[in-house]
């Protein structure tokens, strides 16, 4: 443990990812779920950048950059959906929404 190795940031990435996943599974507020998804994106980015650092390659960073762009797009649409949900169904509770049923 004297040097920084891939194990460190992989552990960090796993921790962040699983915390985000738990948030998605447990919380009922769509806004919080949304934030947890962003957290999971970040966890993945940490992995990519860590591997890039370890392997002396910039491909991982490039991937991370694209993920950030996609996350931005996702944020715009996701928040738009949340607004529409709140306006149309008057709720942001994930358990109150079962439009997907039938």
């Amino acid at each position: 443990m004297s040097e920084l190795t891939a194990t460190h940031f992989l552990t960090l990435s796993a921790a962040l990812f699983i915390i985000g996943m738990l948030g998605v599974l447990i919380r009922r507020n769509v806004l919080v779920i949304f934030m947890c998804i962003e957290l999971m994106f970040n966890a993945v980015n940490v992995s990519f950048i860590g591997f890039a650092w370890e392997q002396h390659s910039l491909v991982g960073q490039t991937f991370a950059l694209f993920i950030i762009a996609v996350a931005a797009a996702e944020a715009v649409v996701g928040l738009g959906i949340i607004m529409a949900l709140s306006r149309r169904l008057d709720t942001v509770d994930i358990d109150q929404v079962h439009e997907l049923r039938e």
Partner: peptide, 13 residues
């Protein structure tokens, strides 16, 4: 912003 715009009554318990 969205948190501001969403009606607080709409938030779940």
């Amino acid at each position: 912003f969205v948190i501001m715009l969403v009606d607080p009554d709409n938030l779940p318990e």
